[in-house]
Write a protein that binds this DNA or RNA. Sequence first.
DNA 1: TTTCAACACGAAAACGTTTGCGCTAATGTT
DNA 2: AACATTAGCGCAAACGTTTTCGTGTTGAAA
Lengths: 346, 346
Amino acid sequence: MKRKVTLKQIAKELDVSISTVSKALRNSKEISEDTRQKVQAFAKLYNYRPNNIALSLKNRKTKTIGIIIPEIVHHFFSKVIRGIELVANKRGYNVIVGLSNESFDKEVINMEMLANGSIDGFILSISKETLQQQDYHHFIETINQGMPIVMFDRVVDAINCDKVIVDDLEGAKKAVSKLISSGCENIGIITTRDYVSVGKLRTQGYLEALEEHKMNPKASLILKVVDQLLSEDHLDSLEKEVESLFKRNKNLDGIFAVNELYALTAMKVARKMHLRIPEDIQIIGFTDGVLSKHAVPSLTTVSQHGQKIGEKAAELLINNLEREDEEDVYETVIIETELIERESTK
Amino acid sequence: MKRKVTLKQIAKELDVSISTVSKALRNSKEISEDTRQKVQAFAKLYNYRPNNIALSLKNRKTKTIGIIIPEIVHHFFSKVIRGIELVANKRGYNVIVGLSNESFDKEVINMEMLANGSIDGFILSISKETLQQQDYHHFIETINQGMPIVMFDRVVDAINCDKVIVDDLEGAKKAVSKLISSGCENIGIITTRDYVSVGKLRTQGYLEALEEHKMNPKASLILKVVDQLLSEDHLDSLEKEVESLFKRNKNLDGIFAVNELYALTAMKVARKMHLRIPEDIQIIGFTDGVLSKHAVPSLTTVSQHGQKIGEKAAELLINNLEREDEEDVYETVIIETELIERESTK
DNA sequence: TTTCAACACGAAAACGTTTGCGCTAATGTT
DNA sequence: AACATTAGCGCAAACGTTTTCGTGTTGAAA
């Protein structure tokens, strides 16, 4: 078991100084052709690679990006990571992942762990708990220490930084407009509580779409699901809530659900009530996950292009990191949504 | 924008030496109560945190684990990561992720990037391309340099290291036995080419189960799908292959599919051919992903417990890293599979 | 022969820590 | 009063790099 070879070892072996070895390897012309070749041959033989940690310490940059997401077992976030990874690697960066599990404390702890030199900047999506508590001091402190942050998807106005979001409002409008133009007259929405910004915006898009088509929103058509974070019977209670939405609106002929799971649940309930999709009721979801694609009937959905979001976020961050001048102009990039029409709509 | 404060700055500010500050913060009793308090107060005020990179350099360990997986947009791998992250964080480690995208070259490059000091050890699942080429020199070199590796799911005998696998053979047997005991007499299998070890083992399990029940395997019942890595029309060609399986076996009444997607495709084809599930044909998949749970009818499946795999892998690695004695005894842990019965079987 | 570049290399500092050891002054012991 | 102990602190090395600034040797020009 031979440990990794260092400059010092090469130097000793070849009876030259460390500086000479370093320069020889970097093709400095201070070094004679002779020694340069000798050193390089030796280095190749022993498979020398500079120690990243030492370089990080010296350069005061790690070439590593920290990602904090609320949950990894989730197609959207996986896709975002893939996007980040893609451009990060292309530009010589590594990616280190922290999971907040939708918890404020874990978010803070994870960020603290990474902020002490391990990474050059953050890409993150805020946990639900943090959004509820509206405590953003850890973001502010991080930024104040000179470490840039890019937020995506779940962002918050209070923090001044680069952001990548989808046009939730517009996406929702597209979806609802589609339902309307396909003949729906009583469209229900299944959404989250308002503190999740994306939920709020999508609800707003729903309302605006109705308004544009001179349709009156009815309170009974709006279902704001209370989400008990990931509990086991969450699915059951969700189903019950959706069922009551169906029951109190006998003439329901369209559903806009702000995520995939809600949409699938709606499909399930519709089936239970012997409604045909899309003949009797049409359904559109949000988030282009794998469920929508393989559902039966397959689900028309508003795609968020998670990978593109990740790519863009990584670009913003790295550009910021590598920018010479220190001017802080923050950008908010909006990734267009796309309505993917499948079998659940006419 | 105040940069992170260092020992040196505190020392200068308080007019003591760096060593004094360091010792004061670590509660060394070499330092007087007086200065200790002074230093600690100052440190707290300026929110001092030791620089991880410097510590890594000094201690020659990074407290970071490198994960290399073929694909992240995949429930199984996400769950494994979650498991790893869980125990890693609990034991004070961070997690850094590299994606091979099923490519040999990317696997090698990623490992090289991480191996030069960035991490203390690897947890990985081998890419398909690597398995095909059977070129494992990068694993061997890494291990030879004293960096431990834990492999999971897709492992290979040629490499001597800790491994965490599911009992693919036994899991497959469970599934097929279930089909048999539910009355199936003509059971088809949809599997991968043999170079993917898990595919091979599951096929073997299928055969053994048949044998145990005195049933003769028929070549026409075995479909080994050629997987053109992630191409767009992969789904189409997959569907055609499955369809021909159905057509050449008119009396097919059971399907064992080695992954979720194959199982779903089988369901789709069955539906197209007007076979009722589970009355006319029963289907079982492998991998407990989200698709199986939400499919209609929901899919009976062999669960692999991805999270548990991740947890175990992290434990093995960290135990190895923190072991004092240098004896190399490698373990292969088998995680039991579990048959989750849902609606696609009787 | 002296002077001066050019050449080839080495010493040392720096990045931020931790820690063994040595030093000084004060205190305690005979 | 002479000596030993100890508390309290600083020096310096080490981890592995890169880079600036010397410095000694050579060869050529004067």
